[in-house]
Amino acid sequence: MTLKQIERLRLKIENIKKTLASEKRKFGGYDDSRGLRYLPTTYYVQLADYAGGLKYTKWFSKSFPDDVGFPDFLFEWAILLYKAGQIKQAGQKAFQTFCSNMYVIDKFLERPIVPIDMWEGWNLENESFLEYFQYNHQQPELKDFAVWLQSFLLTDDFTRAASQFVELRKALDKEDNIEKRSGLVKQISRLEKGDIFLA
């Protein structure tokens, strides 16, 4: 990457931060319907500025505590954590990526995409999202992350949690009872936090 390209990416990050800060001053909160808040992680990964990226995600968590994020955003967050040596947190974020779109990790690792018949809450969770996903395990700067991710997917904690997640989603797809559906949604929400990987 040339100095000019680096400067351009840094400028993009700064402009996004300024726009979001301006919105907060103007409206007393964030009105980011364009989704600008999800873009900086892409630029931080491209810059290999993992410390800067984590500083941004810390701000994101504080500013948007209920925002689950998009699948690629969560994936980039996992990369930032892994590259910064925060392995447990990277595992948690990788699992959250899996929960947000079960096909993203397979796409990254170039594994066969096998659609699963289960409840999907929005279009970001289905296969069609993959056409926008830009990462691949063969990218030189992501090879170490890819090796770690492949081994992480084989851990007992991940296989157990992933299996439970799929089963809960399948049950939700077939359940009509409102109370039972509510119970399933609560179980899924608890599981999606991925706290098991921080233990």
Score class of each variant (00 low, 15 high):
Y82N: 02
N126L: 03
Q89R: 12
L109S: 04
Y103N: 08
Q92V: 04
G91S: 02
S100E: 12
S100L: 08
K83L: 01
L74G: 03
H137C: 04
N126A: 09
L80V: 00
N101W: 07
L81C: 11
Y132L: 09
L130C: 07
I87T: 15
H137Q: 10
A84R: 04
F75H: 00
L109M: 10
Y132E: 09
L109E: 06
R111M: 05
I79W: 08
I113N: 15
S128I: 07
L74V: 00
P112F: 09
Q86M: 12
F129R: 06
A78D: 08
Y103W: 15
A94C: 04
F95P: 04
K83H: 00
Q92S: 05
R111E: 12
A94D: 05
G85Q: 02
M102K: 11
D117E: 15
S128T: 08
Y132K: 09
G121A: 07
N101K: 08
S128H: 11
N126D: 14
V104F: 09
Y82E: 03
R111G: 11
Q96R: 14
K83M: 07
E125K: 01
K93R: 12
L81S: 00
N126P: 02
A94Q: 02
K107D: 12
I116D: 10
W122Y: 07
I116T: 12
D106W: 15
K88C: 06
F129Y: 14
N123C: 08
P115I: 06
F98T: 03
P115N: 15
V114K: 09
E131S: 13
Q96I: 13
K93M: 05
A90F: 11
D117R: 11
V114G: 11
L80N: 13
E125F: 05
C99L: 03
D117T: 13
F95S: 03
E120Q: 01
I116R: 12
W119H: 05
V104G: 12
W77F: 13
F75N: 03
E76A: 13
N136A: 10
L124W: 01
L124H: 03
I79Q: 07
N101C: 08
F98E: 04
Q134N: 06
N136I: 01
Q86E: 11
F129P: 02
D106C: 14
E110D: 10
F129D: 02
F98R: 10
L81T: 00
I116S: 09
P112M: 13
E76I: 02
Y82G: 00
M118I: 10
I113T: 13
K107L: 07
A78L: 06
P112T: 12
Q92K: 02
S128Q: 14
P115W: 11
A84I: 08
C99P: 11
D117G: 13
N101P: 06
G91I: 03
L81P: 05
R111K: 14
P112Y: 13
E125L: 00
Q134D: 05
N136D: 12
Y103I: 09
Y135C: 10
S128V: 01
H137K: 12
Q134P: 05
L130E: 05
W122G: 00
F75S: 07
Q92F: 02
K93D: 04
Q89H: 11
A84Q: 15
M118C: 01
T97G: 15
N101D: 10
